[in-house]
Structure formats: structure tokens, C-alpha cells
């Protein structure tokens, strides 16, 4: 459905940000896009939605180049930006103005999400709301569009703690076989229980793109009292609770995926991870 092929891009001619990024996304998954500050996560999402044009390579959505920005293509995508823009409208007016563009928009769902996020009694203009409140309205709207591809850039930034858990709850019920959700974030703990596929972007390349099942099949997330002497350890982290380790899962033992450990292991072992998840 969504495919990035050998995408090259840079804001300066001398400093390329992406040196041939390949990324393929399948329907029915909730992807977590992880990367360090400045790795280009937001830029990659903009290229994917046709808001930026790659200097070389292709970004394809449903068989069409994303940079075409055709109306049909845009009907299938909703991009919730980190720095949200809201026009000078009330919630009802916003819905009346923009919901008709999305054929699968559900008014009932919108009201339900607003209620869940405690925004159903807000009557003022959205642009006068606090950042967190604006974000909640836009999250509710984005989810109610029921688009096949929902992209969220740092969606939990600005949300209070109760709202973060409500957001996770709503998103968990949102996913289905026809929809793809991409969440770009630094706050991996917010997504830990939610995502079922992980993509890690580093140094202009996608160093990992796999589902949680594949990851835990190939990697073992282990906590022990002493460092493992095996040659198959990718990463260790000493904590008061023990030594956390990421190892190659040679015996296919089940373990719980830890996103932070995975991320640190991946950026320290780019070559090995690229080979392992080929």
C-alpha cells in the first residue's frame, strides 16, 4: 500500500538527510516510527504524504506517487502534525467544514472520541483552546475520518497523563485489517503496549522495519544478574534492577519486546540488524 523506494532527500545540497530510504508498510498494522532527534522522522512522513518531494527515488501511496497529491489520494490519508494548525472555528463548525472531504467520516465516532477525551462540552473556538485541548480535538477528528492511512507525528506531546492512557485505549480499538497507522514519537513508553510493528530510522537509512512478532522471534529481551558472555549480545544496560540485555534469539524463546532496549540495540548495531532483519 505504501512504499518508499530509494528515497533521497536533504534540506542542504551538501548535507543529505536520506541516502536511499526503503520502507514498505502493510495494511492492518500500527507502526511505531522511532529515531533520534533530527533523524528525519517528520521529514520522512512529509515525503510520504506528498508535502515534500524526494530529490531521488519514489514515495508511492496506492500505486501513485505521493507528490501528485490527488484528491483521491488525500481522501485516504490523514496527517496529524505535531505543530497543529486549527482554523478559527468551533468544534461543530470544524466538523461541518472538513468532515465532508472524508467519505468514511463518522459523526458518532467523533462525538464518542470527544467524550472520551473530555472535550464534548467545549463550546469556544478551537484556536483559543490550550495546546493539549487542540490536540485532543484534532486526534478525535483524525480518528473519526476512518482513513486507510493515519499518520500521527508525536501525538501524545502536550497531552496530560490521563489523556495519554485514553488515547492509547481509543487507538487500540481503532486499528483493523484495512487501516494502517504510523506513529512517530520519541516517547516510546507511550506506545509500548500499542504498536505491533517497529521502524527505526537512523543516519538516513531505515535500519529496522519489522513486526513485533518477527522482532521477538529474532531477538531475546532478557534481564539477568550478570552480563552474558555470549557473542550474540547486541546491547546491555545495567540498572539497579538487574542487567537488561538484547541478544540474538537463537533458541526462539518468547520474551517481551522492550522498545527502548530495541532502539538502543539497533542504533549501536546497524549492520547486524540490517542483516538480521533482511
Amino acid at each position: 500500500m505504501i512504499k518508499l523506494e530509494n528515497v533521497q532527500f536533504g534540506y542542504n545540497a551538501n548535507q543529505p538527510l536520506f541516502n536511499g530510504v526503503d520502507w514498505q508498510l502493510e495494511s492492518g498494522h500500527l507502526y511505531g516510527l522511532l529515531g533520534r532527534n533530527g533523524a528525519g522522522k517528520t521529514t520522512l512522513l512529509k515525503i510520504m504524504t506528498g508535502l515534500l518531494f524526494p530529490h531521488a527515488g519514489n514515495a508511492i501511496i496506492n500505486g501513485q506517487p505521493a507528490c501528485k497529491r490527488s484528491s483521491q489520494q488525500l481522501c485516504d490519508v490523514y496527517f496529524l502534525q505535531e505543530e497543529i494548525y486549527v482554523p478559527h472555528l468551533k468544534i461543530k463548525q470544524f466538523e461541518a467544514a472538513f468532515a465532508p472531504f472524508y467519505p468514511n467520516f463518522s459523526h458518532e465516532q467523533f462525538l464518542e472520541y470527544l467524550r472520551d477525551l473530555e472535550m464534548d462540552n467545549m463550546h469556544g473556538f478551537i484556536d483559543k483552546f490550550s495546546h493539549g485541548q487542540k490536540k485532543k480535538v484534532m486526534i478525535a477528528f483524525a480518528l473519526a475520518t476512518n482513513v486507510p492511512l493515519l499518520i500521527m507525528d508525536e501525538p501524545t506531546n502536550g497531552l496530560d497523563i490521563p489523556s495519554k492512557s485514553i488515547f492509547r485505549k481509543i487507538l487500540a480499538s481503532y486499528a483493523d485489517e484495512q487501516k494502517t497507522v504510523i506513529i512517530s514519537t520519541h516517547q516510546v513508553r507511550d506506545l509500548h503496549s500499542l504498536i505491533d510493528a517497529v521502524s527505526i530510522l537512523d543516519n538516513g537509512r531505515m535500519i529496522l522495519n519489522a513486526t513485533n512478532d518477527v522482532i521477538t522471534d529474532k531477538l531475546l529481551f532478557d534481564v539477568d544478574n550478570q552480563k552474558s558472555q555470549d557473542g550474540n549480545v547486541f546491547y546491555t544496560e545495567e540498572t539497579p534492577r538487574g542487567i537488561y540485555q538484547v541478544k540474538e534469539n537463537l533458541n526462539h524463546i518468547d520474551s517481551a519486546l522492550d522498545l527502548e532496549l530495541l532502539f538502543n540495540a539497533a542504533i549501536q548495531n546497524k549492520k547486524e540488524f540490517t542483516e538480521l532483519f533482511k
Binding site: K46, T49, G50, L51, R69, S70, S71, Q72, L74, C75, V77, Y78, F79, Q81, E83, I84, Y85, P87, F98, F101, Y102
Partner: peptide, 18 residues
């Protein structure tokens, strides 16, 4: 003329010609 409003406008599901 502004980055975030430009994103909002460009993402409205209508073609450039429309």
C-alpha cells in the same frame, strides 16, 4: 504563508487544480 497552516491546506482532500 505559514508552515503549519500550509500543511493543513495542502492536506485537504482536493487536487491542486481544484
Amino acid at each position: 504563508h505559514n508552515s503549519s497552516s500550509r500543511m493543513h491546506y495542502l492536506m485537504i482532500p482536493a487536487s491542486n487544480a481544484e
